[in-house]
Amino acid sequence: MNDDEFPNAGNDAETTEFLARRFESHRSRLHAVAHRMLGSVAEADDAVQEAWFRLSRSDTRQVDNLAGWLTTVVGRVCLDMLRSRRSRAEEPLETTAPAAVTAPGDPEQDALLADSVGVALLVVLQTLTPAERLAFVLHDLFAVPFEEIAAILGRTPVAVRQLASRARRRVRGAEAPDADLARQREVVDAFLAAAREGDLEGLVAVLDPDVLARTEAGVTAGAAAVARNAASFAGLARVARPALVNGASGLVVLVDGRVERALAFTFVRSRIAVLDIATDPERVSRLDVSLV
């Protein structure tokens, strides 16, 4: 019996133990797929756990290729989670760097992966549609054939190839976030000063043209729209304080010495490319905040 052949004992203890061992051998790869799809370690954990539940409830005698079967299941779970997130206009604040996992021996894939390790890829992936994201992650980073991705999406392989191509162009244009804290602080100070004065031109000057502003209520895209929203909160801006949020320059609003609202920025080309605004107490509590 090879590694992916299942014992013919039904769902007894031996089969369950065998499934658990085989699943664990694929866990790291499945987690890498889910993390790149979802941009969140916690959500990736949930997606992988759901894949295990589905495997444990399935008729494994019909599974010929466990690795492919599990990748398909995780892809579908992530797709459902992304679609649900978009319907609620939510995005995760968390953008941690994923571990490197890809198909071996393919220089083109390796080059793409080198660009993918870090926040830059996660930032640009969040601007893609769920279908584009699935097509790019599964094909370009994990070498899943277009035919298999087409079955997940319910589209033709040609349509999936086009989705991956569009996503690939956007990823190749992505730039690594600025890490210079001094320069970040200058941009944040300029943003805060302009917001306090309701200065639309000043706000637009420090925003990337394709900036994304994300809150629990929704997502706003584009410098003009984000600037208008920021200017409308001039009162809050007057009491906001500079802080390090998850290690980068950001802003917080304190109430009775407690962080009530946090603004986490991602900077590209010395401009604000992503603005995450957390007001939900649970989300705020998960942030690493240091006043400066």
Rank of each mutant, 00 (worst) to 15 (best):
P177T: 12
Q109K: 06
T127A: 13
E14L: 10
M81P: 01
V63I: 15
R261V: 14
D115P: 01
V253K: 05
F136H: 01
V239H: 12
A262L: 02
R36V: 01
R170N: 04
D256P: 00
G173V: 04
I149Y: 06
T71G: 00
E17M: 09
D208R: 12
R258T: 13
R161A: 15
R283P: 09
A67W: 00
E132N: 00
G198A: 02
R185A: 14
H35P: 07
A32K: 03
L30C: 08
S270D: 15
A243Y: 02
S58G: 07
G247M: 06
A44F: 10
A51T: 10
A248I: 12
V117S: 02
A213K: 15
A143C: 04
L38I: 10
E43R: 12
E24M: 09
R271W: 10
A205V: 03
G39E: 11
R57Q: 14
H26Q: 09
L79T: 09
T127L: 04
A131Y: 03
V119S: 15
R196N: 00
P130F: 03
I277P: 01
R271Y: 13
N229F: 14
A176T: 15
A159I: 00
R85D: 15
G247Y: 08
A195Q: 11
G68S: 01
Q184G: 09
L79W: 07
V41M: 03
G75F: 03
F191T: 05
L128V: 00
G250A: 03
A151Q: 08
E132C: 01
V226H: 06
F265Q: 13
A193Y: 05
L200F: 05
E17W: 06
R269D: 14
V41Q: 05
G235F: 04
L203V: 00
Q49S: 15
M1Y: 11
P107A: 13
A278K: 06
M81G: 05
S232L: 01
I277G: 09
V160M: 02
L263R: 09
T129I: 02
G222F: 01
G154N: 00
M1T: 13
R166S: 08
V137A: 08
A221D: 05
A120Q: 13
L128W: 01
G10L: 00
P281D: 06
L207T: 12
G154P: 02
V63F: 00
D59W: 04
H26E: 09
Q162I: 07
H26T: 05
I149G: 07
A143V: 03
E175G: 13
G75C: 06
V101A: 07
A234L: 01
A243Q: 00
R86S: 14
G198L: 01
D106Y: 14
L181K: 09
R214K: 13
R269I: 02
A120C: 03
Q126D: 15
P242W: 03
I272K: 08
D256Y: 00
P104Q: 04
F265A: 12
V255H: 10
E91R: 09
V41A: 10
S165T: 11
A195V: 04
G250V: 02
L153D: 10
C78S: 15
L203N: 02
V41I: 12
G247S: 11
N8A: 13
Q109M: 07
